[in-house]
Design a protein around this nucleic acid. Sequence first.
DNA 1: AACTGCCTCACTCTAAAGGGTGATTACATC
DNA 2: GATGTAATCACCCTTTAGAGTGAGGCAGTT
Lengths: 218, 218
Amino acid sequence: MPIRILLADDHRLFRQGMISLMRTREDLVEVVGEAETGEEAVQMTGMLRPDVVLMDIYMPQKDGLQAAKEILSRFPGVAIVMLTSSEHDGHLYEAVRLGVAGYLLKNLDADELFELLEGVTHGEAAMTRSMAMRLLKGVAGRMVDAESGEEALSERELVVLRFVANGASNAEIAENLSISINTVKSHLKNILEKLQLANRTQAATYALRRGLVLPREK
Amino acid sequence: MPIRILLADDHRLFRQGMISLMRTREDLVEVVGEAETGEEAVQMTGMLRPDVVLMDIYMPQKDGLQAAKEILSRFPGVAIVMLTSSEHDGHLYEAVRLGVAGYLLKNLDADELFELLEGVTHGEAAMTRSMAMRLLKGVAGRMVDAESGEEALSERELVVLRFVANGASNAEIAENLSISINTVKSHLKNILEKLQLANRTQAATYALRRGLVLPREK
DNA sequence: AACTGCCTCACTCTAAAGGGTGATTACATC
DNA sequence: GATGTAATCACCCTTTAGAGTGAGGCAGTT
């Protein structure tokens, strides 16, 4: 019997395209459900109990990584394969840390996808050579990073960074947090050092691109 | 005869899905070519002269907007329909300004897409109600902005702003553009005044949020 | 010819940012 | 009890950013 698949992606066109593709291999794969949001993916997984969830990362309400975490804790038998366009190494590491069964980029050939999906049902990991390589490099990179002193930001540093990302000056941050400007400078200095950045503007763009602050309009 | 379509998207899976979908409506649409990068899209357009180019925005080498600009100036007869996941208003405005025939989100139904594509060949614009609404709101917003003193940035100012958004210092910008640091300061001063911003960090986040620079990974 | 906007640059001055060093308190961990 | 880390702050010093003012060249428009 074919592999039962739940498709979680917020782009209807992409889902429809995938379904159309999978119809050409009905012997191997069958799309049993679709989800538009992470929240929906969790619920549908509970109801349908698919063999594999093909999960995008960027989704409204709850992103694919959060949804994956929840699914893995509640329905450990379900295999999750991330299928995303994110070239962001951080997403890859996070997904692997959660224990997903695969991480694939949308820049992938359909036949390869079918092959890898079949492997997943046999307990293999779904990952292309290039993704595996990036993962290895990432692990190596983290070891180097640990040696060279890069660590995660503290809570307070994150708060300061968010202010910076909103264009606040040190004085304004100090006032808002009711601390001395020296302390703000101190935090910012640590932030720049930890993240290996040169100035506050780079810190701001870093924060925006990592989604540490919401990209509000206007 | 069917509408001849060039598919420009860097995700192979998406392209394959779209092709599979369009095979179901062979009477109406035909994919005559695929492009993985903006540069490729330009070249393929020259060679194939499709009726419509379905163009994504995020692509390596040359993004969809740049490619659209080039195609429209070199092959004015070709209709370009942006098909993207970008909810960024800046991208929408830019595309419309360039003169594309449509702007659609990938969160779209296949049947709707087919309908809209047919409309394009009859000279209609391919745009969903919600996109049209966003466009109108954007225009209204810009009129208000114009009254309150916001003006468009000059070409040079945009270049400087892009550097700022990448975290460059005035000295670095000056060196890269081979102009004096005083000139850079002068440009930046005008930018801040035109956009009613307080400092370069705000300018950087402004640029990022408006999509003036592509949110590169890494 | 006059005007306008854009790009270029200079000079001054003040405010802000950022690097370095060191120190205290508090809290958790080992 | 020692160690470590986070958060707080101070002082000094150098570099950078930003505001103000003025000005020349150049292209396009009226």
